[in-house]
Design a protein around this nucleic acid. Structure first.
Lengths: 343, 343
DNA sequence: GTCACAAATGACAAGGTTGTCTTTTTTTGA
DNA sequence: TCAAAAAAAGACAACCTTGTCATTTGTGAC
């Protein structure tokens, strides 16, 4: 393994100059800079994480705290983050976060002290805690927010356009000819629930159709059981919907169960769509049409921001939102509304 | 943060002696050892990972490579490992492993070089590769095998008793009065598939019953689609089973779908059990009776072994298998065989 | 051509740990 | 009791990087 000394020798400069080049510091002649860069490349040099960590008291790892580690969403995100870190030559240290423990700041501090990570990605619901953000500022740990409820001035955030995605998903159903479409919304505390519901309504407004009345929107709390009973109520109502758009795949799976219980077949009797594209979407049958969250891209952007390869735009508070493009995944859970149920 | 120098001062010894005590080296008087230990405790000292890493060229992190990161099993294992590491004051570095890339050793070496982990847990299928194990030996990286196919002399392994668990799961079905029980086996390359099938047959043998004929055992490859068609074939056969034991929860979910398609209700018409206890077991309805793999305990044992708190028993090659106790999780997917289907 | 000043570069220490080698202390055997 | 050997403890360097401060080189004005 080449060290900074080898590079210095090869370039004919002092180690300090090499260090300056590495860290993009000022006061280095362009010609010198080039010479050092060449030497680094030819020796295939990469700086020692340990030495840096010792000098600076920080590691170059990226930290991430989970709060709901069982969820498929977290699992997918985790995978995307590992991949993104790996691609960027960094690595990920994950920790468990206990939402029920009141001492959020204490938990974060313990994690920082133990891992010495120099940067973090903050996922929901931690990304909305002012205390946590203040704590990171104090510790001068760089951070990115992932899908936060609202922008924080001067802090970069990566996210997707929940509202637009929900609108597109609804339009997909509308395109099939569905008119009575119900929505099972997520947990009221999550901004995503609100945005997805808005997108759902946008689709009707845009086409000049009367919006769905409130009886067609049920709360599912992002919870299977809750969504199950909501779906049963919806499907057994006097004028049942011909399509149901659930705000998460897990809740969509619950709609499948409800439909199964009532002897309705998918997509002949009822069309169903979800949101997230977690593994269950492909496990259930027929496979679920859903919105794929661009977690790979979001993770890549997050790592880029933390590695300074992507400068946060600083024009205004909103502009350092990086919005990754989503995708509608069309599978087999949607069809035209059946005549016998529309009458 | 206290350093080794502070401890040395407080104990009235040289830093080297403190180092000796920390690393359990010889040539330290018991009285001195005690004095140093007290000083460490009173100063709440913990050694700097970075300094160690610099001196030794290794970090104290535990590494783990995923190959099938989407799977619920890996996700649960990951969670258990994070928790176990956290409890032991260590941390986990996870990486992606590409099974399809032929250069397994190269991938491992790259991971070791980048992360400098001093120990690893090897999960299936990597834990069965002699090349990988040789590579770790060469690099003198400590490692534990998690659920390997066969023991490796001198190497600790943590595992569960697949065969016994499968027997118990089958007995559970037998206890309900089922006589025609089918089994959907896993991928033939996995030893777990073989052991679970053996356990399935053990249950019959032990009760002096005729073993199930081969038409009652189908191969599901641990794959949803594959299990789906196997289940359909089984359930539409002339003398269909009254219960199906699938070798994984995902495959059990496929059985649910097959039953739904055929208008069979669970557990009235057909009893179903799974294996693994991954999230889907509780998501599907009715909730699945299954075997809970003791991943928390296995992870804890693995970390203990790697931290030397648990010496591998070295009496013989088989005895350094740590077998963690499993549990049968009884939910709502089993019932007595229905009369109308038995005649 | 000289001086003042700025820009570029370098020498050196520090950070916390462990290996090597040396010194001190204790034990053993006569 | 003393020498010799063994055990215990210590001094110091090395690991690789970056911050501080000193030195050299270059620039522009007189």
């Amino acid at each position: 393994m080449a060290t900074i000394i080898d590079v210095a020798k090869q370039a004919g400069v002092s180690i300090k100059t090499v260090s300056r080049v590495m860290n993009n510091q000022a006061n280095v002649r362009d010609s010198t800079r080039r010479r050092v860069r060449d030497a680094m490349a030819s020796l295939n040099y990469s700086p020692s994480d340990a030495a840096r960590q010792m000098r600076l008291g920080k590691s170059t790892a990226i930290g991430m705290l989970y709060s709901d580690p069982g969820s498929s969403y977290q699992s997918r995100l985790n995978q995307s983050m590992i991949q993104a870190c790996s691609d960027a030559g960094r690595y990920l240290v994950v920790g468990l976060f206990n939402e029920d423990d009141d001492d959020w700041v204490g938990q974060l501090q313990a994690f920082l002290a133990r891992t010495k990570v120099d940067s973090m990605v903050l996922v929901p619901p931690m990304c909305d805690s002012e205390n946590l953000k203040a704590c990171l500022n104090d510790a001068s740990v760089k951070y990115v927010l992932l899908s936060p409820s609202s922008p924080t001035p001067g802090v970069s955030a990566v996210t997707m356009d929940d509202r637009k995605a929900a609108r597109e998903m609804t339009e997909h159903l509308l395109d099939y000819g569905h008119e009575r479409i119900a929505h099972i919304a997520g947990h009221p505390d999550h901004v995503a629930s609100f945005l997805r519901r808005q997108g759902f309504e946008d689709a009707f407004t845009e086409r000049g159709m009367p919006g769905p009345d409130s009886s067609q929107v049920a709360s599912g709390n992002f919870d299977f059981r809750c969504a199950l009973s909501a779906a049963e109520k919806l499907l057994t109502s006097p004028n049942p919907p011909t399509a149901i758009f659930a705000a998460s795949d897990d809740m969509a799976a619950a709609v499948y169960m409800a439909a199964g219980k009532l002897g309705l077949s998918i997509p002949e009797d009822i069309s169903i769509t979800g949101f997230d594209d977690v593994p269950i979407a492909q496990t259930i049958w027929p496979a679920l049409t859903t919105v794929a969250q661009p977690l790979d891209n979001m993770a890549k952007d997050a790592v880029r921001v933390l590695s300074n390869s992507l400068a946060p735009t600083t024009k205004d508070a909103n502009s350092n939102f990086l919005v990754a493009p989503h995708k509608i995944i069309t599978r087999e859970s949607c069809g035209v509304p059946s005549a016998n149920r529309r009458g």
